[in-house]
Design a protein around this nucleic acid. Structure first.
Lengths: 261, 261
DNA sequence: ATTCTGTGATTGTTATTGACTGTTTCAAGG
DNA sequence: CCTTGAAACAGTCAATAACAATCACAGAAT
C-alpha cells in the first residue's frame, strides 16, 4: 500500500460517502490515525476535499461550514486584513474580487459582516469575481448577489482566466475592486506569479472606481513575474503591519492610503 | 453525529418548518441545549438563518437546494445515468453541461472515469459549464479542462444565468452538450422550471453538435414552466428505465436514441 | 553501506461538548 | 406602566476526543 494508492483510495472513499472520519479511514485502510490525518491534510492542501474536526467532507457536500478550521490554518494576518477590508465596504456597493487566499478570506468576511446585511434594500451588495471558490461559497448567502466572470479554470488557485474574463469585465463598472497580489514593490508596483491572473487583475483595475490592494507583510518589497499595476493606480493598501523603508515612501508619494486592522 | 451533520440537519429542519425551537432541536438531534444554541449562533453568524429568543427562523427561501444536491449523491438512478453518460463521452471531446442534480452526478462520473484520463495527450477532455458547483468540483481534476461561462449566480441551483452566459457560449463550439431537464414531454419537448436556466440551455443546444438529455424516469411525460427545445433537436436520451407510451413513440418519431444503463 | 523518506507510537496541546451558574429577556397579570 | 416568575441566555468548567509535534524504527533509494 503505497502513499499514492492510499491517497487515491481515500479520495474515492470520501467522494463516495460524502464524508468520512479518521477512525473509519484507519479502519478501512488499516493505517494509523496519524497517517490518516497526514493524508487528509495533504489532500486538503491540494483542495481535493475539505478537512473537518474528526475527518473530512467531499467537495460539494451541502454547506462546507466548518471553515474555522481552514481559517486557523491560514494565519491570523489574513483574517485581520479581511476584517479591516470589510469595514471599507458599504451596503449596495458593487465589489470586484480576484482570487487568492487573502481575497477568499475577504469574501468570507463580507459574508459575515453584519453591516452588509440589508434588510429592506432592493439591491444589496454585489460581488463580481473570477474565483470559483469565492463564487461557490458566497452563492449560498442570501444577502449577496454574485456575478462570476467566466473563463478557464486554473487548478492551483481556482481562478478563471483568459479572454472570457476580460470580455465580461469590460461591460461592468465596479465601485471597489479588492485585489490580492503576490508582491508589492516600489519599482514594479503590484505583481503576481501568473501572467493570466495579472491580465485579469488589470481588467479589474480598468473598470474600478476605487482599487484596494490586500497583502500581508510577507509580500512587501517583493516583485514576482507579472505586473498588475503601478502604485499610483492603487487607492488603498490593507495590510497587517506598518510598512517601512523605501516602499513606505513610495506609497506615500503615490498617494496610497495604508490601512491597518 | 458530527458537526457537519448537525449543521446540515439543522438548516434542513429550519427551512422545512420555517422556524424551530431549541428544545425541538435538542430533541430531534439528540444534542444538548447548549450545543443547539452554539450551532444556531454559528449559522446565524453566517447569515444562513435568523436567531430568535428560544430558537431560530428561516430567512427568505432557497436553502433546500444545496440539500437536494447532497441527496442527489445518493440517488441510484442518477448514479446509473451518470455512469452510462460517461461511456458516451470520449477523450479530447469538448462537453457542455448545464446545472442540476443529475448533471452534477454526470460531472463526478466524468471526473472519475478512467477512460477519460489522457496520459500523453495535449488536449484532453474539456468541460464547459454554467454550474458553479460543477466548475468548483471539477477544477481540481488535472485531466479535465474547465471553462465556466460566467453569469449571475442563482442561489437555488448554483447555476449562472443571464446575458453573460449567452455571450460566452455564442463564441464556442461543443462536440456534445449534456442537459439536465425538469420535464420531457411529447408535446412540449424538454422543459425546465426557471426561464433563465431555459435560456442558457437553449444557448447550449445552439452551439452543440450532439445533444444528450439526461433525466430520470420521474421527469418523463412532465412539462414545467420554460421550454428548452423540441424533441427533434435531441440526439440521445439517457434515463434509467425504458420509456413507454406516447412519449416513447414521439421519441422514436423524432429520432431520439434512448440509452439505458 | 548509508542516507532519506514515510510510518506508527507517544506526548502535550487544543477543540468540542454537556453540565452548571448567574444574568437577561419575555410576557402575563396586577 | 411596572412587577414578577419562567424560560432562555452567556459564560465557565471538566471530560473527552482530536490535534500537532516529536521521536524511533523500517524499508526504499542512492
Amino acid at each position: 500500500m503505497t502513499q499514492q494508492h492510499r491517497l487515491n483510495a481515500l479520495l474515492e472513499l470520501v467522494s463516495d460517502r460524502g464524508e468520512i472520519s479518521i477512525t473509519e479511514i484507519s479502519d478501512a485502510l488499516q493505517i494509523s490515525a496519524a497517517t490518516a490525518r497526514r493524508d487528509l491534510n495533504a489532500l486538503a492542501d491540494e483542495h481535493l476535499l475539505t478537512r473537518t474536526h474528526g475527518g473530512a467532507v467531499a467537495l460539494g457536500t451541502g454547506y462546507e461550514l466548518p471553515l474555522q478550521y481552514k481559517i486557523a490554518r491560514q494565519g491570523e494576518a489574513k483574517l485581520a486584513i479581511a476584517g479591516a477590508v470589510s469595514k471599507l465596504v458599504s451596503l449596495s456597493d458593487s465589489i470586484g474580487l480576484n482570487g487568492g487566499t487573502t481575497t477568499s478570506e475577504v469574501a468570507r468576511a463580507l459574508g459575515r459582516s453584519p453591516h452588509l446585511v440589508g434588510k429592506d434594500v432592493e439591491y444589496g451588495l454585489t460581488v463580481v469575481t473570477n474565483a470559483l471558490n469565492i463564487g461557490y461559497e458566497l452563492s449560498v448567502r442570501p444577502h449577496i448577489k454574485i456575478v462570476v466572470t467566466g473563463g478557464i479554470a486554473r487548478r492551483q488557485s481556482y481562478e478563471l482566466v483568459g479572454s472570457i474574463v476580460t470580455n465580461t469585465l469590460s461591460d461592468l463598472v465596479l465601485d471597489t475592486v479588492i485585489l490580492g497580489v503576490d508582491g508589492l514593490s516600489e519599482q514594479f508596483g503590484a505583481t503576481t506569479l501568473h501572467e493570466g491572473e495579472a491580465e485579469v487583475s488589470q481588467s479589474f483595475v480598468k473598470v474600478a472606481k476605487r482599487v484596494i490592494v490586500v497583502a500581508d507583510s510577507t509580500k512587501m518589497g517583493r516583485a514576482t513575474l507579472a505586473r498588475i499595476s503601478p502604485l499610483d493606480q492603487i487607492d488603498v493598501l490593507v495590510t497587517e503591519k506598518p510598512v517601512s523603508g523605501a516602499l513606505a515612501a513610495a506609497l506615500d508619494a503615490a498617494n496610497v492610503r495604508v490601512v491597518l486592522p
